[in-house]
Every structure is written in structure tokens, then in C-alpha cells.
């Protein structure tokens, strides 16, 4: 009897209290601090998928660009094919790959790689095209073979354009990785859609995506500055 009364009192007491931040669906720093852990796994998955996809995409696109650099006639067909892959919505690609690779990380990575190819390919090609003819001539005059010319003169001079492509690829891939939960591969998108109504959740999970994109972008920029010391202090 007294227990029931006590429970009733407590209930009434709770009703009189102003609704908590979570009940009001506000932006709640306390809730975020308490629930920080639940974003850890999605964030790690997100970083993993982004880095793996960009790395594979870079290797493929870079090789294609080097091949096409020698054989110019390959540029239009490669641009067309990677262009189609770029145009295909990645969400559609997740499901088109279902019969071939099923649900999961493999499917997600294939779709993300497909998307990044064009971005990297066109930047490598543009970078190589913009190497001044004088620099090439000087290299040839010094007796460099075509292979040496490529690795010692052309690629270093093309680095800023190549890295610019890598930065675009990284930031877009972070954004796209927010969709891979549709392919059953997790990531921060899953955290966002676990509760779209709750503002704190959306802000934290979405915010983490943006922060991740900015951090990775700045990292690539930092690496670029580090490996192209001659561009420092020159306006880009």
C-alpha cells in the first residue's frame, strides 16, 4: 500500500518536473556525452570504408591514367566508361551488385571505388597535360628515358593536380559512405537513420561525417605540402 503510494508520488513528481532535454527533443550535450560510445563503431567503419575505397580507386585510376598518358587514344573511352560509373547512382549500384556480391562491405567498396575512378583519373591526366613542354624538353636534353621523364619530371610537377583530385575523391567518398548502410555495411549513415527524429543524434552523426571529411581533406593537403616543398609560399 505504502509502496504503491510512494510510486504514485514519484510519478506525480516526475510529471511536475520540466521535460528533460531528450524529451523536448533538443540538442543535448549531456545525452551526447553519455552516449558517445554508440558512435564509435560506426565512425570506425566509416573511416575504414572511406580509406579502403579511395586507396583502391586511386591505384586503379592512377594506373589507367599512366597507361592513357602514353596512349592518348585511350583517354576518351576510359573517360566515357568511368563517366558512366560516376553517373550511376551509388545507391542503385549497391542493389545492382546484390546478385553478384550480396550485401556487405564488398558491395559497398565496389560502388565507392566505381564512383571515385573518374575524379582521380581526370585529375591525373590534367596534371600530366599541364606539365610545361620546356620541363619535358629539359629532361630529355639531360638524357632521361621516357620512364625516368615520367617519374622524375612529369609526375612531380603534376602532383598538385593529382592531390587536388584525391581531396575531392576523399570528401565525396566520406559523403557517399553515409549511404552504405543501405548495402548493409554500417557506417555513420546507419547511426543517422537509427533515429531521424532525434535532433541530438542527427547532429552528432551528421557532424561526425563533416568533421571526418574536413580532417581527411586537411590530411591530404598536409601530405601534399610535405611532398611538394617547391609549391610552398606560392599562391595556388
Amino acid at each position: 500500500m505504502s509502496l504503491a503510494l510512494f510510486a504514485q508520488l514519484e510519478l506525480r513528481d516526475r510529471e511536475n518536473q520540466p521535460p528533460s532535454c531528450v524529451e523536448r527533443n533538443g540538442f543535448c550535450p549531456d545525452w551526447i556525452a553519455d552516449n558517445w560510445e554508440r558512435y564509435k563503431t560506426p565512425l570506425i567503419e566509416h573511416i575504414e570504408l572511406t580509406l579502403i575505397s579511395v586507396a583502391i580507386g586511386f591505384v586503379i585510376a592512377f594506373s589507367l591514367a599512366l597507361i592513357a598518358h602514353r596512349r592518348r587514344w585511350l583517354i576518351p573511352p576510359i573517360t566515357q566508361i568511368t563517366g558512366i560509373l560516376y553517373t550511376l547512382p551509388s545507391v542503385a549500384l549497391f542493389f545492382l551488385l546484390l546478385p553478384l556480391t550480396g550485401r556487405g562491405k564488398t558491395t559497398a567498396i565496389i560502388a565507392l571505388v566505381a564512383y571515385s575512378l573518374l575524379i582521380i583519373f581526370r585529375n591525373v591526366i590534367t596534371g600530366l597535360d599541364e606539365v610545361p613542354e620546356e620541363a619535358r624538353d629539359a629532361g630529355r636534353g639531360m638524357g632521361l628515358t621516357p620512364r625516368q621523364l615520367l617519374w622524375r619530371v612529369e609526375l612531380p610537377l603534376a602532383l598538385p593536380a593529382i592531390m587536388a583530385g584525391l581531396r575531392i575523391a576523399v570528401t565525396t567518398t566520406v559523403g557517399l559512405t553515409a549511404l552504405v548502410f543501405l548495402a548493409g555495411a554500417g557506417g555513420l549513415g546507419e547511426a543517422i537513420f537509427a533515429d531521424t527524429q532525434f535532433r541530438s543524434n542527427v547532429v552528432v552523426a551528421g557532424g561526425l561525417c563533416v568533421v571526418l571529411a574536413v580532417v581527411l581533406d586537411l590530411t591530404v593537403l598536409g601530405v601534399q605540402k610535405l611532398i611538394t616543398p617547391w609549391t610552398r609560399g606560392v599562391a595556388t
Partner: peptide, 14 residues
């Protein structure tokens, strides 16, 4: 580019 489309839609809904 850095703002994921999913997050943007979810923000409007929330």
C-alpha cells in the same frame, strides 16, 4: 561536398 546528403535530409526532418 563534405556534407552528406543523408545528414542534410535527416537534419530537415529532425
Amino acid at each position: 561536398r563534405a556534407v552528406p546528403s543523408v545528414a542534410l535530409i535527416a537534419l530537415f526532418i529532425a
